[in-house]
Design a protein around this nucleic acid. Structure first.
Lengths: 247, 247
DNA sequence: ATAAATCCACAACATATGTGAATGTTCTGA
DNA sequence: TCAGAACATTCACATATGTTGTGGATTTAT
């Protein structure tokens, strides 16, 4: 299903770009003039596949999507999680070929931005280019933190770290109320993000529940003591590069 | 020690940027006009630390450097390896604060590019900006492959994969002769890159030697049968985004 | 050339996490 | 409302990898 983008959607995009700082009013107007289309995508569906040379960049407006690769033995490894407001694949505007796939985890609303539009923006609007580049660098910082976590944190700390990160990321887009948020992932999805087995994710969650670090019920996560969970996993939010501006 | 950059060094930079494609002769001339300084750095020394707001971007001309974070229990996790021709920290041109550290692994020669220079380039030279952005996206692709490897590959395959990646990356900068290259890393360094223990790296290397997958002696790695090693770890080079041009 | 410092090699043992399988629970759609 | 699917939970057991420690080999500095 395709519909034309509403002002609210454009705002999501502008807010995203503004968090890099440095956008002028003219830049904002340029973005508003873009003729963007919105699309509804069901859960567990690929947006682009490894090897593709897609014609559109996607921005998530609602729902969760992920970046993943499939390993030899059929194991799926999730390398990034996209929450509302995140770009899925700015890559394709610059690199030729996708080296990984992108799929929805839940039903999503996404904006499609033609590659040519990005190319045009980067040729003529340095501030917007700067903002887009900024977005990819923050994505990279998150990716790096995931790598460090998988390489060096034990399963419980790693899991806690993901929950802390999600809390902050969802807070900045207004999707967390206080100390809780909807986390509509399967334990299987979590396993693929954490580099663990579903069985072990289940074990870890049980332990965390027993320690009262989390309350997780019907896909809703509540963190009774945020400071305690952060301390538990040694969480440091610097890698999210949240500016004062963006909350 | 500081010296002014020689033409050969500028060439390294220009070659790097050109691999993204799209540079005009005017762009190249712009790069040649930059007044860059070169620096010798001993092994195992930090170039920038987490929390810094450095004034220079670094480019490695010779030697190996790495991007790392230190975890609670003092464990160092290496998130990226920089070989000659690689940028260390384009981040600092865009993001405010370093969320990780950068250190040399071996003695290095690095070029220092002032932040202001990058800012100027990105404001006035869209093709160069595009090339720089391209470089960060390739870095991100490599980082993603490392994440996927640590999350989903067993130690031997993971190690083999690193060796294959290094072979290609060093080939493109002329630092591999055929099927071998100098790999001046400690087993400790390897462990930090692979998310393993030094002891286990030692075990894995022994096995790989016994299987004749590698010949590793006095910090020099030879791969008797490259195709066999690639098959062993299911190596797919697409994530390196090497263009025909750049090789 | 020699000593000191790293680094490599190997062994015995500990444990976090993976595997396979059975059962119960919660969604989902007709 | 029901049946079927998808998901969560738990168990027993297997194994890859971590931990601690010791001795020998290289490298580095004097």
């Amino acid at each position: 299903m395709l519909t034309s983008a509403s002002p609210a959607m454009i705002d999501t995009l502008i807010r995203k770009l503004s968090s890099a700082g440095g956008l002028t009013e003219a830049d904002r107007e340029t973005v508003r003039q873009l003729n963007l289309r919105t699309q509804q995508v069901p859960a567990r569906q690929d947006l682009t596949c490894e090897g593709d040379r897609p014609e559109n960049v996607h921005l998530v407006l609602s729902g969760f999507a992920c970046r993943y690769k499939v390993l030899p033995r059929g194991r799926r490894s999730i390398a990034a999680l996209m929450v509302p407001g995140d770009f899925c694949d700015l890559h394709v505007a610059i690199l030729d070929e996708m080296d990984h796939s992108i799929a929805t985890l839940t039903p999503c609303t996404v904006v499609e931005i033609p590659r040519s539009t990005i190319r045009d923006l980067t040729k003529n609007h340095p501030h917007i280019t700067h903002a887009l580049w900024w977005a990819t660098l923050v994505d990279e910082a998150v990716l790096r933190e995931w790598l460090v976590g998988i390489a060096g944190r034990e399963a419980p700390e790693r899991t806690a770290h993901l929950f802390c990160e999600l809390l902050l990321r969802l807070q900045t887009v207004g999707l967390a109320e206080g100390d809780g948020y909807a986390m509509p992932f399967t334990q299987n999805d979590l396993a693929d993000m954490l580099g663990l087995t579903p069985v072990h994710v289940n074990r870890v969650l049980r332990e965390m529940r027993l320690d009262n670090l989390i309350v997780l019920k019907r896909r809703y996560l509540r963190i009774p003591d945020v400071a305690r969970l952060c301390a538990f996993c040694d969480f440091n939010a610097n890698y999210l590069h949240r500016t004062p501006r963006s909350k």
